[in-house]
Design a protein around this nucleic acid. Structure first.
Lengths: 217, 217
DNA sequence: ATTTGTGAATTACTTCACAGCA
DNA sequence: TGCTGTGAAGTAATTCACAAAT
């Protein structure tokens, strides 16, 4: 999706599977499992074993032939690959229903990535906190993002405001954006934008239903 | 992802783009635009023109050569294709942070698909309403889904409960599920399951950041 | 003249199948 | 022996390029 550097293009799809592997590996590690095969891991994740091996092979060789993978070691490697070695700070713009849910959801579990700045344009919300993180006015966006060195952001504002927010985020140094607004955002070289359009996903579901066939014609 | 019938396999990716086209077409129709080219539509949606033409071609020919598409007519056709002609009822299981946000978000706009039943196992929540839809106890799931003829559901419960909920939904006749839990759900033939794993998406974002490169080695 | 609809070419992604190693 | 790592093969999705239509 985003244009990436020359260093051999790795499929987006592969990158997006890595965190799923990571979660299962962490569960296994917690259970004291000290070796796991690609077949076992694949079964738990819901992909094929060769998919996992191929995905990992883009970055190196992390297993032992005839044995499998060490969950702790492989987990650490995946974190390194993704850039999740130290806790990564994320900005959230928009503390409406969805933004608030995301913030609470994130703060509950998940240590690798942490929402550490929340912005909203509504002055009634400013000053309140979600899980110990204070909501700041939109005016402070650039200042706070620069101060924290934030490179990732979540946009959860109405469609009409999304592009303006994205522009300000990118100006402030944000390089990767998770966009929950239905707006098509204009990105820039060196910036990655992942869109998650919840209502669109829901509408697409209807296609896979037999109700559809009944009303066709 | 889901095994579909013999009638020429249409890419999931194409299906998931149709609602995006639909939204833009509805905006255009509302603005009184009476013709739009694939190029214009593509620019607004953020894909290539031939992508749009190819996606539509799976289902028929809806435009006029040399002219373009009628937004109203094409919108109607896409609704027909997706099965969104009458308002489609959807069940939501789990009225936590995310579930509540989804319910409110859905009830705000979006008429084609409507959350018309909400379930939660927490008896403190049962009886309360979100946007006029009462939260029912999990015990009533099968009864209510059958009564309303619901075929689509959203799972927004903790990972540990997700499979049990999915099984009950499928038993009750649900054919398409949007799963927000991080669990890998075991589906069945004739059922479509779309996973949206928000925290995983967020972790994947980190890869596209320059922070990553700094800590590599 | 212009823009759709579509086979052909291309690119991207996944699966196969087996060589390489513990 | 058993499981990883990987080139080769296969499949799927996208883009090209142009004939068909108005």
């Amino acid at each position: 999706m985003a244009p990436r550097s020359a260093e051999l293009r790795i499929p987006d799809a592969a990158i997006r599977r890595l965190p799923v592997y990571l979660r299962v590996l962490e569960e296994l590690a917690e259970d004291g499992v000290d070796v796991v095969s690609s077949a076992e891991l694949a079964a738990r994740v819901g992909v094929t074993p060769e998919q996992i091996r191929k995905d990992l092979a883009y970055f190196g060789a992390f297993g032992t032939r005839g044995v499998g993978y060490d969950p702790v070691l492989l987990g650490r490697k995946i974190k390194r690959i993704l850039g999740l070695t130290s806790e990564v700070p994320v900005a959230l713009v928009g503390a409406g229903n969805l933004g608030t849910a995301l913030a609470r959801h994130n703060l509950a579990r998940h240590k690798e990535v942490r929402i550490s700045a929340i912005f909203d344009r509504d002055w009634d919300k400013v000053g309140k906190s979600i899980g110990g993180v204070e909501i700041l006015p939109l005016e402070d966006l650039e200042k706070e993002i620069r101060a924290q060195g934030i490179k990732m952001a979540i946009i959860a504002v109405p469609a009409g405001e999304a592009q303006a927010v994205a522009d300000r985020l990118m100006d402030a140094g944000v390089e990767a954006i998770l966009n929950f607004s239905p707006a098509k955002l204009q990105g820039r070289p060196g910036t990655y934008i992942q869109n998650i359009d919840l209502m669109t996903e829901l509408q697409a579901l209807a296609y896979y239903t037999t109700l559809r066939k009944a009303q066709e014609g």
